[in-house]
Design a protein around this nucleic acid. Structure first.
Length: 836
RNA sequence: GCCGGGGUGGCGGAACGGUAGACGCAGGGGACUUAAAAUCCCCCGGGCUUUGGCCCAUGUGGGUUCGAAUCCCACCCCCGGCACCA
């Protein structure tokens, strides 16, 4: 019961009181036993924040509130809702900030976490604080390391060399996102490429499954689309072109064939390319190798060696991002070498050009300038021939090409295949070359294996030990965690290896297998790995002997509803799906998709742009909550616009929701002690309509319109200064409770309820009969233009409506214009009279 | 360039193909007050008007329909993502 019977609405008193009560009663916290045997479990998840030094920003609060509203709604519908929150505190972001302010992250992070926790409690989310987590805590990353070991054992983790962006001034590896048009985003120095041995997860093995399963998921369509694009499936063929004049040494054979077969033909080395247009092979007039391609040296003739060499060096110096700028002019160098086009039998020159990327396909292409825009541009630049092999509906076989033609049509200048439609030609030509063992149909994906190595300090050490005798040896599970040591000088340096490589007493160890001297892996893992499995950990944080308990996991997962930002549409969500699938295949889970339903929230805009420190348009939430209370702030944020689209934040706008809560208080408090008398019939009808609308819209995240409906209802209750009856306002409280949990609790208690409103299935039912109007206003149109309205009983007959309409002077006047030709009657809505 | 999502009053936004602008902000007027705040009431897309009404209006131009913000076609603009992926 409320102990403070204040007559006026004092948000901070109400909110402090209820937050203390939830805490004392454990309203939102589950015991381990409760987690083991839920009856109607609902796992309500939101993306956990990175605990920055600035504290929670409005964008965080917006996302969390939207998710919390959904969770509280489910709770009021009788589900047991598990709504955890935690902290994603590892990573380059924290590390750079720590370097900047000169405080060690091991001190910075706990302070930030404490501040975030205070703010998160203040906004009134139904978080289970007994099951929170922090990815930087050894109790958590021990299991992140365990996860690495499971993938390693399952053959899904491997070490290989790969190019990375390197900033020579910051002396560190940069992610692609940190390179802005070839320059380091922080210091503007030119970024270069380095090759470093790193750990990869074989996510590409799962490409097709990741793509196929999307069909089964209830996710925002935009998110699914982003994943499809990222996976980038394309169907085509691997084609093999005999290389002329090159001795097929065993070294070369080692490096050329991706498909692992048919490396030579009649003494010729075969060059493999991937194409989606095998139908255009008769138009392949030259070949292009990526500068890094292993065959470049072998193909280059002595006359060309110097030019090729300098071109390759230039390409190597360029960063990976600037390489991919499309506006860039096409550049390249002739190697001096030739291949034979297996379709035409012609000898065609082999070039090196940076528009061909080593990481896609085989790093080599057959160039068909007539029917590929890039090849066309290149051919133009270097004055290479551009034959036509596809004719569109308006073309002849000899119609010249002044741009690449990529549309549909039939094959021309293609020997026996002339006249075939492009799609037919693809299959026929592939089959023809397959017979000669020069082709194999192939699906290629844009998706790359996931590089999880970071040459940085602030992350979980990868649990591997290198032994001269045994090679790379996984750290035994019972020796986890491999604790990240406290290192005062954690600044990255020019060596290209992690700062941990400077900590001899840490990396020197003994081989777990043979006991001889060995060295720990000094790279740490990607932050995305921390967040790729955190939802599995939440319900099991009470347990320290497993990553996640099988029984608890079966009860609560997969996640019923996940809400977060679409900026994670690809990486985080794709990695989480991959890890879940891998864990299922490895026997640790019995489901393979982690998030049954996912919705992306919109962005909050202020003064025309996204809130950011540099724009100076950020809103600091604490003073607003101080002044108006968390309930008002929550309500305002949810009222701004459709949750999935975001909204425009205006400082003065908060007055609307604040006034609404004050009026609600003033309406309910005076009637709280009265016995329930029957609602006024008109008000009751509106009440049932409101319940119907809110019940339908809240689960669909239609928050702004639900709030508008409640405002409208309160306006009806208070119309012309009338005093509410108890039965009119009591059902409104649970409708509002997901948005404004504190005031809802307070008013619920004042209405005489002893238990928390969230402790029972208190969502009200509506009676469809009671939502029905008995009289309606019918719009009357003449020739489609509104000329008046008439009021009549619901479901009135057309004749009655017509008679009434004719009696309307303004309608009658317009009917004089001619003869009534047609009557369109939509019962209870509209009558349209067509005259002419 | 490609893929999403959008263009509706001064502003945020509502509208199963059926009275465009719900709900709210801002603004204007009034009541209460010595005054202010708070609260309450009224007005609030534009133009014309004999105050009965009439016309225009949902990015632009066409179309379908008795009727289009909503469906179709073409185009313009804004936001977000991807971008030499063969």
């Amino acid at each position: 019961m409320p102990d403070d019977r204040s007559e006026w609405y004092d948000p901070s008193a109400v909110e402090t009181r209820w937050q203390a009560r939830w805490e004392a009663r454990g309203t939102n916290a589950y015991s381990t036993d409760e987690l083991r045997s839920p009856e109607r479990p609902f796992y309500n998840l939101m993306m956990f924040p990175y605990p920055s030094a600035e504290g929670l920003h409005v964008g965080n609060i917006y996302a969390f509130t939207g998710a919390d509203v959904h969770g509280r709604f489910q709770q009021l519908q009788g589900h047991q809702v598990f709504e955890p929150i935690g902290f994603d505190a590892f990573g380059i972001h924290s590390e750079n900030f720590a370097l900047k302010v000169g405080t060690h992250p091991m001190e910075l992070i706990p302070a930030n976490v404490a501040n975030f926790t205070r703010q998160l409690r203040r906004i009134g989310g139904m978080f289970d604080w007994a099951h929170t987590l922090d990815t930087t805590h050894p109790d958590y990353y021990r299991w992140t390391q365990w996860l690495f070991l499971q993938l390693y054992k399952g053959g899904l983790a491997e070490r290989k060399e790969a190019p990375v962006n390197w900033c020579p001034s910051c002396m560190t590896v940069l992610a692609n996102e940190q390179v802005v048009s070839g320059l380091c985003e922080r210091c503007d120095s030119a970024v270069e490429q380095r090759r470093i041995a790193q750990w990869f997860f074989r996510i590409t093995d799962y490409a097709q499954r990741l793509l196929d399963n999307l069909e089964t998921l209830d996710w925002s369509e935009t998110t699914k689309k982003a994943q499809r694009n990222w996976i980038g499936r394309s169907e085509g063929a691997l084609l093999r072109f005999p290389v002329l004049g090159v001795e097929p040494t065993s070294d070369l054979l080692e490096s050329v064939s991706e498909s692992g077969e048919g490396k030579t033909r009649e003494g010729h080395l075969l060059l493999e390319v991937f194409t989606t247009r095998p139908d255009t092979i008769f138009g392949a007039t030259y070949m292009v190798l990526a500068p890094e391609h292993p065959l470049v040296d072998a193909l280059t003739t002595s006359e060309q060696r110097e030019a090729v060499q300098s071109y390759r060096e230039k390409a190597a110096r360029m960063d990976l991002v600037a390489r991919k700028k499309e506006e860039k002019e096409k550049t390249g160098v002739f190697t001096g070498g030739y291949c034979r086009n297996p379709a035409t039998g012609e000898e065609i020159p082999v070039w090196v050009a940076d528009y061909v990327l080593m990481e896609y396909g085989t790093g080599a292409i057959m160039a068909v300038p007539g029917h590929d825009e890039r090849d066309f541009q290149f051919a133009r630049t270097f004055e290479l021939p551009v034959p036509r092999v596809v004719a569109g509906p308006e073309h002849q076989a000899d119609t010249p090409l002044d741009e690449a033609y990529t549309g549909p049509g039939r094959l021309v200048n293609s020997g026996d295949f002339d006249g075939m439609e492009v799609e037919v030609g693809k299959a026929k030509i592939t089959a023809w070359l397959e017979e000669k063992d020069l082709a194999v149909a192939r699906v290629n994906y844009r998706l790359h294996d996931w590089c999880i190595s970071r040459q940085r300090y602030w992350g979980p050490p990868i649990p591997i030990v290198y032994c001269d005798r045994c090679g790379a040896v996984p750290v035994p599970e019972d020796q986890l965690p491999v604790v990240l040591p406290r290192v005062e000088d954690f600044k990255p340096d020019d060596s290209g290896v992690s700062p941990l490589a400077r900590v001899r007493e840490w990396y020197e160890t003994e081989c777990p297998e043979c006991g001889s001297d060995a060295r720990r892996e000094t790279d740490v893992s990607d932050t995305f790995l921390d967040s790729a499995w955190y939802f599995l950990r939440y319900p099991s944080t009470d347990l320290d002997d497993v990553a996640f308990d099988p029984e608890i996991t079966r009860s609560w997962l997969p996640v019923d509803c996940y809400i977060g930002g679409n900026e994670h549409a690809v990486l985080h969500l794709l990695y989480s799906r991959f890890i879940t699938m891998a864990l299922k295949d490895l026997g640790h889970l019995d489901f393979e998709e982690p998030f049954t339903r996912f919705r992306a929230h919109g962005l909050i805009i202020r003064e025309g742009s996204k809130m950011s420190k540099s724009k100076g348009n950020v809103v600091v939430p604490d003073p607003i909550i101080e002044e108006y209370g968390a309930d008002t702030f929550r309500l305002y944020l949810m009222f701004l616009g459709p949750f999935e689209e975001g909204g425009d934040y205006r400082d003065s706008g908060i007055q609307g929701p604040f006034g609404f809560l004050k009026r609600l208080w003033d309406t309910v408090v005076p009637v709280a002690d009265l016995d329930g008398d029957d609602p006024d019939p008109d008000v009751e009808r509106k009440l049932h309509q409101t319940i119907e609308q809110v019940t339908a819209q809240v689960p669909e995240l239609g928050y702004n319109t639900s709030i508008a409906a409640m405002m409208e209802y309160l306006n009806v209750v208070r119309a012309e200064g009338r005093r509410a009856r108890r039965g009119e306002v009591e059902p409104l409280i649970p409708l509002l409770a997901p948005f404004c949990p504190h005031i809802a609790e307070e008013l619920w208690a004042r209405l005489g309820h002893d238990e928390s409103i969230f402790e029972g299935a208190n969502w009200p039912d509506f009676d469809p009969v009671k939502t029905q109007e008995d009289r309606v206003t019918l719009a009357v149109q003449v020739n489609g233009k509104l000329r008046g309205t008439v009021e009549l009983p619901t479901g009135a007959a057309e004749d009655d409506a017509l008679a009434l309409a004719r009696a309307e002077p303004n309608v009658a006047r317009h009917l004089d214009d001619g003869e009534l030709r047609r009557v369109i009657y939509v019962p209870d809505r509209l009558l349209n009279l067509v005259v002419g």
